[in-house]
Design a protein around this nucleic acid. Structure first.
Lengths: 340, 340
DNA sequence: TGCGTTTACTAAACCGCTTTATAAGACGGA
DNA sequence: TCCGTCTTATAAAGCGGTTTAGTAAACGCA
């Protein structure tokens, strides 16, 4: 990497003072008369001195780094979150490291272990499955951790979530108003907080009608395909589908297209996230939009500015508002092609 | 973070040996008789000892970290690259830090500066514009750097690129064969290596016919919209469009849709990247596919396994093959709606 | 028995920074 | 003149590892 790095000692020697003086001055803990200050400033400039961050971190016991533990970086929802977090962290002089888990508990534990060894200044944890208790335990060992997007049982850490209940409600409402009375939900497992919130909202939006459901552990197009197949087999008069993420929607649409199931003629569909270019799909897909960028920024802001001494703060849950983007994938149920 | 961390000293004391012995043993530089070894192993286990990475890095002068400098993490092309790089690095025990530049030279320089201060073990640099000489200079100060996706003038570092010339050729060929004789290119500026390679390939695929061109500095939907507007104004009989990235394609399609320009009836279109779900678009978009995951992995593998002592290695350019994914956005030019 | 060679291990310097405790000298007032 | 109080620093002990140079004891062998 860089070649002729100079150390504090070099600066001190050149400015004819002690290293302690230089260190304290550079860190703003020492006022100096003009003469001394000038000599130090000049020495720093002449030598192009930059403190060695490793030494600094060893001494200070911190890392100036946040660890982002994320199911899948290639998934647009998470990559948008990551982008927002990186931007916010960079503005505040912090770095971020990336750790993909693919929602596997062993990877989550390994990533947490890694982050803890590295003495990160903060942790943002995202998962899409119900991790074993060990994961929450490990999260709780961090003095600064944020749980993002999906609640984690027994984690003592502030949460930044979207308003899943409201999202479900908006989807239910638009479907109910279009005339649907029999809808199915495809998404995360029922033991997830987000899932039960969405289902609750959906039911409320549907005036109390509960949906047929299919679940998976992850949000990936492949899972969407699998669930779509299962749905087409199990389907009993459903005229609409509420899908838990754009990734799943992609898989679902692939299967529908392959099997000649038309949206919205045969079945209406509402997606969740709105991070893919759903407006260009055939048909354009109606979706509940998550405030992705705001969620990412909030997570980092809380890490930096939260009142971490207040035990109450750890109980915080910040619920960010979602909104419905209406497009062309919802229509009135079609009695002719409606399945038995 | 973690609380009761134990140091090497603690382990040494407990095993009744010196710290040097423990350190050398744990790093595999010392064979020990069973007795001593057992005592150390037990002490390590009892104390749940884990070396302090900051101390280790200070001592060894490295960071076990790769820096990824990337235009925009939210862009699916880059997030897929990042995902592949992170996965590959994690397999080999390395961490990655993320730095978004939005193709701004000042941000690129700041990120390079940061990476160099942090004594990263390696750098992967991606840009989409023609950066000032200072950027190449700074890249050259790293002992291990890879230039990915887009060539950087005067950078002395191995390159991992896709075969842009072949990509252009495939696009040109499919358009020519469909009957197009007048196409336009929308994408990166002409001073970029990728652009000239693609244009060269395109011309070859089009049997020597050169295209109308419009350029931008970044790959973003907003730029796509702008270029599409400009194209519709400047357009002089073009019947097809070759677009330099899926991001730009999204913007182009938005404008086309808003203005009632139909694809492929009014104009045929070939995209580049195939990282968005183009197969679900209306119409499904024909595209040149980049081997994104392979490109990401190769960059990291080269960082780890390259022969960095060989000056020849720095001259390496690895050109990865692209392929054409034919879908519905290319048809024969329509003489009726063809513009004047 | 004496001597060279292993074997088994250690003392101490070093990486480069932070920070506490302390000191030397100037200055002001009694 | 003496004493207290600023001002302006500094010495030295960390932080927790790695590594070089070296040593004491056991061993092999003539």
């Amino acid at each position: 990497m860089a070649q002729n790095r100079h150390s504090l000692k070099d600066v001190a020697k050149r400015a004819d003072v002690s290293v302690a003086t230089v260190s304290r001055y550079l860190n703003g803990f020492l006022e100096l008369p003009d003469g001394t200050r000038g000599r130090i400033d000049r020495a720093v400039a002449d030598l192009d001195y930059r403190p060695n961050p490793h030494a600094r971190r060893l001494s200070l016991g911190r890392s100036d780094t946040f660890a982002l533990i994320i199911p899948d970086i290639a998934n647009p929802f998470f990559s948008r979150l990551a982008a927002a977090m990186e931007a916010c962290a960079a503005e505040r002089g912090k770095m971020v490291t990336l750790h993909a888990t693919m929602n596997r508990s062993d990877r989550e534990i390994a990533a947490l272990e890694n982050a803890s060894q590295n003495l990160v200044d903060g942790l943002v944890f995202i998962t899409n499955h119900m991790p074993p208790p060990e994961v929450a335990e490990r999260i709780n060992r961090f003095s600064r951790a944020i749980v993002l997007d999906e609640d984690v049982k027994d984690a003592r850490a502030p949460r930044v979530l979207c308003d899943n209940e409201q999202g479900g409600f908006l989807a239910g409402q638009v479907l109910y108003e279009a005339g649907h009375r029999n809808v199915a939900y495809i998404g995360g497992r029922e033991d997830l907080f987000s899932t039960s919130a969405r289902l609750e909202g959906l039911r409320r939006g549907m005036q109390g009608i509960a949906p047929l459901r299919s679940y998976v552990d992850d949000h990936a197009a492949a899972s969407g395909r699998e669930l779509a197949q299962r749905f087409l087999k199990d389907c009993d008069g459903e005229t609409a589908l509420f899908v838990g993420s754009d990734e799943l929607t992609v898989g679902v649409l692939e299967v529908f297209r392959a099997q000649g199931v038309r949206v919205p003629e045969d079945i209406s569909l509402v997606s969740f996230d709105n991070v893919r270019s759903l407006h260009l799909f055939a048909p354009a897909i109606t979706a509940v939009e998550q405030p992705v960028d705001i969620m990412g920024r909030r997570a980092i802001e809380m890490l930096l500015d939260g009142d971490w001494d207040d035990p109450k703060f750890l109980e915080t849950t910040e619920l960010l508002p979602v909104r419905l983007i209406e497009r062309q994938s919802v229509s009135a149920p079609n009695p002719i092609t409606r399945k038995a």
